[in-house]
Structure formats: C-alpha cells, structure tokens
C-alpha cells in the first residue's frame, strides 16, 4: 500500500486534482451550484474549446516549446470559412465548411512545421512571427470584421447533445453536440500518441532530439506533422467556437494563448522535455477555467480577476516546476 501511496503523492497531477476538488467544494459551499447538474454541464461547455486548443499546445510543448500562433490561426481559418459558408445562402452539409476550415488550419500549421523542422529556432519566437503573419492576413487583406452567422453553420452551433434542467431553481443548461467532436479528437490523438511511431517519436524528440535521430526516427517529418496536426486541430477549435457563438468575432480568440499554456504547465506538462500528455491537458484546463469562471461566485470583483488569475498561474507554475526536487543534498545549479 505504502509504495503506491508514495508514488501518487509524488505526482503533480494529484495536487492539481486535489486543488480542483477543493475549489469546487468552496464554490459549492458559497453557491450550492457547483456540483449540480447545470453546474457540471456549464463547466463542460466552458472548457470545450480550450480543451481543443490544449491539444495543439500540448503537441508543440512536448517536442519543442510553447506555440503562440494558434489563436491567430484558428481565427483566420474560422473567418475564411465563415465568409464563404456562413451566409444564409449556404444550406449544404456542415461537413464541407468543416473540412475547409481544417485544410486552412493545416496549411498554417505546415508553415510552422516546416520552419521548426528545418531549423533549430525557439518555438516561441517562430510562432510569434507566424502569429503576426496570420493575424495580419486576417485583418489586412481580408478585412475581417464581426459578422453574424447564418445558414448551416449557425444551425450547427445550436445542436445540443444534452439538455438539463436544474430541479432546484429551474435553470437550464445545454451541452452542445460539439462536445462529441472534442471527445473524438481526444481519442484520435490519444491513439496517435500511444500507438504510433509518430507519437512515441514526439516524446523521444522532446527528450533528446539528437538521440531520436540516431535511433532512426525521422525527426523532421515528425515535427512537421506535429505542427500541421496542431494547426488543423486549432482550426477545428476555431470552427467550433464560431458556430457556437453564432458569429464571427475575429478578435475573440486572440490573446488566449496565455491561459492554455498556463493550463498545460499547471497540469504537469514540462515544455520541451517530452513529459506530460492529454490527461495533464484536461486537468489543467478544467482547473484553470473552473477558477476563472467562478471567481465572481467567490466574491472576487470583476476587475480583480486578472490579478487573481495571473497570481494563480504564477503560483501553480512555480509549484509545478519545483515539484521535481532532487533527491539528494547536491545543488547542481544554485
């Protein structure tokens, strides 16, 4: 019994889950709404898009480092798709715009992937550059602006999977059918990571790129694929978000990279070291979104929320990084 307990206590994931539970209990104590059916459904609804973006970020974090370009890419893909298919005149299948959006995301991802595979630049700087290009294209030549969706895409956003009503106060909550997409995505990526050379290669590269090459992995190809896949998935996220909201607001998603990166780190992913997987993304995102959305509930005034979120992110990062304490008294780096 003891060794298992010790192992569990040593993992960052344990503390994240514990914190989430504690927080949930606190909110429940104040509002009585947290663990209700509407509360849970609303939470699931809130984390949906973030979960998707989390995959993109995780792919980049595992083999290289942070990716800050995916909000721009997601917005760009969604915007282009919506401008072509978002009017009332389009009544065809939802599949077509979905695939188109994915294709645009893939293209953007390929640009990231090519540069990252070919050169040894820090991912932060490369993706800063591509982010600028993507958002520039969107706002510049394409003159992106807020538009309401009609037609198929708007309908898609309103399909619900689960609809619940809270018996106590009659509030309703809906879980969009898009949640299914998220589940499918996670299953696919899980399979890729676990059961293909691409997935294992990704971890090997994160661990030691040169060794991975020497072991016979085609590292360039794997990195290229990782970012292409990431771009595609980000586009899916953008698509989902746009349909959900029922309108295109290009600037909505921008600036969201901070939350996702923080969520991944909090959840236990170590950037550029090949440590951490999908489970870490999930618990990190859930914890962070939970906190963000419920600060008001706990009585924290609106304007203080950024401070709070920032502080929690910093605290969580410090704890996550320092949880790998060395087992002896030797300090190798001061």
């Amino acid at each position: 019994m003891m060794p298992i307990m010790k192992k569990i206590l040593n993992r960052t994931e344990t503390y994240v889950i514990l914190t989430a539970l504690l927080f949930g209990i606190a909110v429940e104590a104040v509002s009585g709404q947290f663990f209700s059916n509407t509360g849970m459904i609303n939470l699931a609804r809130a984390v949906m898009v973030y979960l998707v973006f989390g995959i993109t970020e995780m792919l980049s974090l595992t083999c290289a480092g942070p990716d800050v370009s995916y909000p721009a890419l997601a917005s760009l893909s969604a915007f282009i798709t919506a401008s072509w298919f978002g009017s009332a005149s389009y009544q065809g299948s939802i599949i077509v715009p979905f695939l188109v959006c994915m294709a645009i995301g893939a293209l953007g991802g390929m640009i990231n992937g090519y540069i990252m595979a070919r050169f040894d630049f820090p991912s932060l700087i490369v993706t800063l550059g591509t982010s600028s290009v993507f958002s520039g294209i969107m706002y510049g030549p394409l003159k992106a602006s807020n538009t309401i969706l009609h037609g198929t895409m708007a309908e898609f956003g309103s399909i619900n999977m689960i609809a619940v009503t809270n018996p106590e106060n009659g509030l309703k909550a809906n879980l969009p059918a898009q949640f299914l997409i998220v589940t499918v995505l996670y299953l696919i990526v899980f399979f890729l990571l676990r059961y293909t050379m691409f997935g294992r290669g990704l971890y090997a590269i994160g661990s030691d790129k040169a060794a991975a090459e020497r072991s016979g992995f085609k590292t360039g190809r794997i990195i290229f694929l990782a970012y292409t896949l990431g771009g595609t998935i980000a586009a899916i996220g953008g698509f989902m978000y746009t349909c959900n909201v029922g309108a295109i607001s290009p600037s909505d998603l921008m600036g969201g990279e901070m939350i996702i990166i923080a969520a991944c780190t909090l959840g236990g992913i170590r950037p550029g070291a090949g440590i951490g997987g999908l489970f870490n993304v999930i618990i990190g995102v859930v914890l962070l979104i939970m906190i963000q959305n419920n600060l008001l509930m706990l009585g924290i005034p609106l304007y203080f929320q950024d401070v709070f979120t920032g502080a929690i992110i910093l605290l969580g990062t410090i704890v996550a990084i320092n949880s790998q304490r060395s087992r002896n008294g030797i300090k190798k780096n001061g």
């Binding site: 971890y203 090997a204 661990s207 030691d208 060794a211 991975a212 072991s215 440590i275």
Partner: peptide, 8 residues
C-alpha cells in the same frame, strides 16, 4: 551518453 530517452 547511451542515447536513451529518460521520459520513456
């Protein structure tokens, strides 16, 4: 340096 992958 063995070229092993510590995280696997």
């Amino acid at each position: 340096d063995f070229s092993l992958f510590p995280n696997l």
